[in-house]
Computed example of a mutant assay.
Amino acid sequence: MSAFRRARALPDADHVIETGPAITALMAREISPADAIADGSVRLTGGPKLLTRFTDIFRI
């Protein structure tokens, strides 16, 4: 079973983040956006700068 769940993205979405349980670590700053992308725990459609912005805004 994959840890990734694909929700329906808007057709013109600038950014889509696909992740599993690692989203908690990412938002808690336990892992960096670059590390999450590098180890495959996050997949992106869009640029990595938007993921960094997302984690700056939505912190836990």
Rank of each mutant, 00 (worst) to 15 (best):
M1P: 11
D39W: 00
P48R: 07
R8Q: 14
I23M: 14
I17L: 13
D39E: 13
R53I: 10
A22W: 06
R29M: 04
F58I: 08
E30D: 14
T45K: 13
L10Q: 12
G47R: 08
R53S: 09
M27Y: 00
A34I: 04
F54Q: 05
P48I: 14
H15M: 13
F4G: 02
L26P: 10
A28F: 06
T19H: 04
F54S: 07
R59A: 14
L44Y: 02
S41Y: 00
T52D: 09
T52K: 11
T52Y: 01
S2G: 08
A28L: 14
K49F: 11
G46W: 01
R59T: 11
T55R: 00
F58D: 01
R59I: 11
L51R: 04
R29Q: 13
G40E: 05
G47V: 05
A9P: 10
G46Y: 05
D56S: 13
R29W: 09
P33I: 03
A9T: 10
T55M: 04
P11H: 07
I23D: 03
D56F: 00
S32V: 01
E30R: 03
D14K: 13
H15E: 02
F54T: 08
D39H: 03
T55H: 02
A13F: 09
T24E: 15
A7Q: 10
R59G: 11
K49R: 12
V16N: 03
P21M: 01
I60C: 07
D56C: 02
V42L: 02
R6H: 12
R43L: 06
G46C: 02
H15N: 03
T24N: 08
D14Y: 03
I37T: 05
P33F: 02
R5E: 12
T52F: 01
I31W: 00
I37H: 02
A3Y: 08
I17N: 05
F4H: 09
G40H: 05
